[in-house]
């Protein structure tokens, strides 16, 4: 079945996008990403340590020719910082894609959606392909789309919480209204959560902690790969209606 995710003319081979944080080392990161089948990997932008120069670099393990590198503005609490990191990321990288985060609160890591909207507008104007990380709020999703977001990334639950899709009904409404792709970003804890997101009709899922923090990240990466494929296929296939009573699936005719 031909079912390719295309955003702004860019073809994505997998509907599972993965982060590169929280792994034991670069080798484990590379193996998990390989097992996940993802072709988008998110990275953060940080200062090079000029005093203690490590010879190894993340990009020695994750080949930018093989994977699409999606820089994020993780850790940014203001519009100014998010813009600064985005512009640096564009210069350091190879594309205009940016996973935009403007964080509003340290404890919940919920987005500051007012700042997010402002930053989305400015970056879209500057030609960035903006993927804003937002709340599961249908109104804000629409506003971000109108502001020029290439896709919108509502959270399923707080970052790293593993609580799954806490408000599938909101995600459903976001999906019904959206003209741009919708990707669940954050909250997935295990394979079934990823499947639920995809069954709802999300275009892709971004997962980091659920894979990197699993006892065996490489096996979990593979589980997520199958979970996303299963959820997507189930969505395309169209599930049966839920009913209160039974409905036999074997014929009555021919019974003894």
């Amino acid at each position: 079945m031909e079912d390719t995710l295309i955003i702004r003319g860019i073809e994505f081979k997998s509907r599972l996008w993965v982060g590169t944080g929280k792994y034991k080392d670069f080798e484990e990161t590379a193996k998990a990403i390989e097992a996940s089948g993802a072709d988008v990997v998110t990275v953060a932008v940080r200062r090079v340590n000029i005093i203690d120069r490590k010879s190894e670099n993340l990009l020695d393990y994750i080949d930018p020719k093989k994977y699409k590198i999606l820089p994020n503005t993780a850790g940014c609490y203001t519009v100014e910082d998010a813009l600064r990191y985005s512009r640096l990321a564009r210069e350091a990288g190879v594309s205009d894609m940016i996973k935009l985060e403007v964080i509003g609160d340290e404890k919940t890591l919920f987005p500051d959606t007012i700042g997010l909207l402002k930053a989305t507008e400015i970056l879209a104007e500057e030609g960035f392909i903006v993927f804003p990380y937002t709340n599961d709020d249908p109104i804000m999703a629409k506003r971000l789309e109108d502001a020029g977001a290439a896709a919108v990334m509502p959270l399923g639950a707080p970052i790293g919480s593993g609580l799954g899709i806490r408000n599938p009904y909101n995600i459903k409404i976001i999906l019904e209204q959206a003209k741009v792709p919708i990707l669940v970003d954050a909250g997935v804890g295990t394979a079934s959560d990823a499947t639920i997101a995809m069954e709802l009709g999300c275009d892709a899922v971004l997962i980091n902690t659920a894979i990197a923090g699993a006892k065996d990240p490489i096996v979990m990466a593979e589980a997520m790969k199958h979970a996303v494929i299963a959820g997507r296929l189930a969505y395309l296939a169209g599930r049966i209606q839920k009913k209160l009573y039974a409905s036999a699936s074997s014929p009555i005719e021919g019974m003894l």
């Binding site: 982060g19 944080g21 953060a44 890591l109 990380y133 790293g160």
Partner: peptide, 12 residues
């Protein structure tokens, strides 16, 4: 002068 590069990260 600021010199930055890509490091491991996902969300936040």
């Amino acid at each position: 002068v600021e010199i930055v590069y890509f490091v491991g990260g996902g969300q936040y």
